[in-house]
Design a binder for these strands. Structure first.
Lengths: 338, 338
DNA sequence: CTGAAAGCGCTTACAG
DNA sequence: CTGAAAGCGCTTACAG
């Protein structure tokens, strides 16, 4: 079956394409009778407007693009869900792309989205992204851009984030208040902002509580395999410090769970021998043994917020509105591991 | 910055739009010199073709739609990843929609995708979908359609599935060989095919091994909250059967983990008192305590396969090619819970 | 209340 | 080798 066009409806009804178009869109200057006829026939023929034609004409696509490092990740999956949900309410569709932590793929995805003519783009950057020309390109094309979670500080645009430093600070301070003194940190790659900020929060909590910062308690997890990174770092940690470490603050739940698994399998009791705090509150952390203390990061709500911010910029097209940075609230979820 | 068009390039170079278009696409009938000029200027101006115009003209969008019940689900996230990966290789973009197990949303998503003019659609149906008119509509619009995982048996189209019945059969037979005799089953909703098939496999394994099928050992999990469904059913199971049940085959890992959590919290030893087998091999099942025996369902590979099948149909446009049903291999992953 | 016409940006069959 | 022209399906300013 060939797609039905306005022209076919017009011919069948012996009226003009113009009138059909206007009738379908409830223009006030079309008679009730004509509207009724047109709508009925359109319905009967299962008419669906050709989106490419509409887009070309109206210069908007009702489509937005999202780029995330990966879809197989509880936090990102939750954000995506929130974005799609909020977008659907405004009749927007979402093109999803993944960078797989690869800068080239991220750049290519941006180009594809621009050429697609999406009305806006949302990105959570790859860990490797250090050059932000592709973000400038988006801005140069006058396409609204919102960064979320993995952002670039130096790019001027709207952003949705959490206060990573503060969240990390609170987590580590909680450990200190509980009496832990030798607190290790499994951090992420050196480059991403969240990794830097969580580390800074960790360090600041130590200093403000008169605990000496010991760099040998900090391990870098940067192999893009959080579970095994956490597992391997836990082994190194114990090999090096033995009993001279009593707590661990891990950059993500997955890293924490890798470590937790190592401790469990090697007779190291949690939290008696070592306490653990993760980051993100993945579902998994509530069912693991022991359940994991972690920082709740409201992904679904973040997704909705990201879309709202983008939508605001889309609507304000041609009017310059100030960029906003929205900070989502996090909270420490205390469970058995501390 | 307004987007650059062919016309602007043509004017700057004092040649025709036609020639610019052909030069950019390396038509053989354009001189090397002109091609070089055009390409250089296009590059300099950061020319990106207007996709809507191209789509309108070529009647294809290089875009495909995917509808899944939810993105926050390890298996679906994995399939999505595979689809996006395979699609990108062929320069296809993926519009992602979620039905949230709601038929209305599924239907609306289909309409949106059709109107968008996507070149093909892939769907994993919601649990509630019992009427398949919207799938027929896709076919009537001559849009290639591939169903995966949650399929409709009566819809005539290409499909990618696993052999749910066989996989379930093997899991239950494995329990029987291990000596378990009172094997419960936590099944899904009555409607979805996977739920039916896994139940049938369970039942058949019992019968073929001379174990009486006891309907009171079968519980239905249909509240769209697998963890709590599993947890609640586990309580009911124990309340009703006490020690007179020694194994559980759950329809998904999440249901299994809900039950596992209940057993763990109530002093019921796994696998001594009760063995558990899940379904899907979510990452979580390898780190839970005890680790979960389950059936591995190759989501990533399935995603790639779904796209390949769809792509074949897109390429064969206007030529009728036979529908295919591809069955992905599953395997039993034996861990501590059995 | 209705419709002819222009135009969105591209591709391509055709003429020269 | 180059380009004028048609046309994809729609929307909308304008005329009547």
């Amino acid at each position: 079956m060939k797609a039905i066009t306005l022209k076919q409806i017009a011919e069948e009804l012996n009226i003009s394409v113009t009138t059909v178009s206007k009738a379908l869109k409830d223009y006030p200057d079309v008679s009730k009778k004509t509207k009724k006829q047109v709508k009925e026939l359109a319905k009967k023929l299962n008419y669906i407007p050709n989106a490419s034609a509409v887009n070309l004409r109206t210069q908007q696509t009702k489509t937005i693009g999202v780029i995330v490092p990966t879809t197989v990740h509880h936090f990102f999956a939750t954000v995506i869900k929130g974005i799609i949900k909020a977008a659907k309410k405004k009749d927007y569709m979402v093109i999803l792309m993944q960078s797989e932590e690869d800068v080239e793929q991220e750049i290519k995805s941006v180009d594809l989205l621009i050429s697609k003519g999406v009305d806006g783009i949302m990105i959570s950057l790859s860990n490797k992204t250090q050059n932000f020309d592709h973000l400038e390109k988006i801005k140069n094309h006058d396409i609204p851009l919102v960064l979320f979670d993995k952002i670039s500080k130096i790019t001027d645009c709207s952003k949705v984030v959490i206060n990573d430093q503060k969240a990390a600070y609170e987590a580590v301070e909680y450990l200190i208040k509980k009496g832990y003194k030798r607190i290790a940190h499994f951090r992420g790659d050196l480059n991403p902002q969240v990794s830097i900020d969580r580390f800074l929060g960790y360090k600041k909590a130590l200093l403000n509580n008169n605990i000496e910062f010991d760099p040998s308690l900090v391990y870098i997890c940067n192999n893009n395999d959080d579970f095994n990174d956490g597992h391997a770092s836990a082994k190194k940690l114990i090999d090096m410090h033995g009993k001279n470490v009593d707590a661990l603050f891990a950059i993500t739940d997955m890293v924490a769970i890798g470590a937790l698994k190592y401790f469990n399998d090697n007779g190291i009791k949690i939290p008696k021998d070592i306490a653990i705090i993760g980051f993100s509150n993945w579902f998994m952390s509530s069912v693991i043994t022991p359940t994991l203390t972690t920082i709740d990061q409201p992904g679904y709500k973040m997704g909705k917020t990201v879309f709202k911010l983008l939508y605001k910029e889309i609507k304000a097209k041609n009017v310059d509105i100030p960029y906003e940075t929205i900070e989502m609230k996090t909270s420490l979820v205390i469970r058995e591991s501390t």
